Amino acid sequence: MSKDAKDKAAAPDAGAKKGGKKKLILTIVGALVLAGGGAAGGMFAAGMGGGGAHAKEPEVDPEAPKLVAREGQKAHPADQYKEIGSFAPDPKVYKPTYLTIEQNFTSNLRDTDGVVQLALSASTFYDQKVADAFKDNEMPIRSAILSVLADQDAIALQTPQGKDQLRAKLTDAINKVLVDKTGYGGVDNVYFSSFIIQ
């Protein structure tokens, strides 16, 4: 075989080897780029990207009510950043304050001649600001409670589930009034101290 024939026979193998090396290099570079992007994405998702541990805490409105820890308990700092009403404070950590409405409520019930009479109190895990707002806005709160009561079914109210649903509706109605009047809610629950359907 002539020298030219040997060179031609060897040329395709050399080209194949160069092409194989390029593919190998591109594959390695691509894998490194993907791995780096995945690591960066993971760090960002874990809060390490963009400042991570040095990231600024969310701002808390200094005028907003603060949770009140029980004696001997330490409030969780992150709880103060949570929007009021967006979570249920831990009753083992936070102290409830009970808010009483002195006058009882009497209301007709929906689609019946029945009447409900009840007395109720509310609770909050927040500081005196909620108690003051509750007292200052008692008249619109009473009106909202009477509106909710007038929309209730007498038969449903005779069951424990009906009473629980009414408590949830009353809590929502009270918080809606407080948010409209003050910008924050803070009532966690309502309690019946008397409950009569006639």
Rank of each mutant, 00 (worst) to 15 (best):
K21C: 05
V60D: 01
E59I: 15
G37P: 07
R167T: 05
K3P: 15
P91D: 15
V33R: 14
G41E: 04
A64V: 09
A154R: 06
V116H: 02
G72D: 10
V115H: 06
K22I: 15
G36A: 14
E59R: 14
Q80V: 04
P96G: 09
A154Q: 04
G85N: 08
A9C: 05
L146G: 07
K74R: 10
I145D: 13
K176W: 09
I84R: 03
A119S: 14
D188G: 10
A46Y: 15
A168D: 15
L166V: 10
K176D: 14
G186M: 07
V130D: 05
A144P: 05
A39C: 05
L34I: 15
V177R: 13
S193L: 06
I174A: 03
I196W: 00
D188S: 10
S147F: 00
G30E: 02
P58M: 01
K6T: 09
L120G: 03
A14D: 11
L32S: 11
A133R: 05
G20F: 08
K23E: 12
D79W: 11
K66Q: 10
G52C: 08
A122S: 14
A39Y: 15
I197D: 10
K66F: 02
M48F: 15
M1A: 02
D136C: 04
P160F: 00
M1W: 15
A39D: 01
L178I: 07
V29G: 07
I141E: 09
Q161M: 07
K176A: 15
Q128L: 05
K22L: 13
Q103H: 14
E57D: 08
L118V: 04
L170R: 08
A133L: 06
G41F: 07
E63Y: 00
A168Y: 06
L67H: 01
E57T: 08
V177E: 09
A31E: 09
D127L: 06
G183S: 07
K82S: 03
G50I: 09
K181M: 12
A75N: 01
E102I: 00
K176I: 00
P65T: 00
E83L: 10
L157M: 05
G38H: 13
D111V: 07
A122Q: 12
N108D: 08
G36M: 13
K22C: 03
V115R: 09
V148I: 13
V60H: 08
L166K: 08
G37W: 00
G30V: 09
D132W: 03
D113S: 12
P140V: 04
Q198C: 03
H54D: 14
D7A: 14
Y191R: 01
A131K: 14
A46P: 06
Y98Q: 12
Q161Y: 04
S86N: 07
R110E: 04
P62D: 08
K129Q: 03
A55I: 06
V177S: 04
Q80L: 05
G36D: 12
S86Y: 07
K21A: 11
F87R: 08
K95D: 10
Y81A: 01
A122E: 12
G51A: 13
A64R: 09
K23P: 06
F195M: 02
G15F: 13
I145Q: 12
V179E: 04
L99R: 10
L24K: 08
D172Y: 01
K163N: 06
G183I: 06
A16S: 11
S123N: 13
Q73G: 03
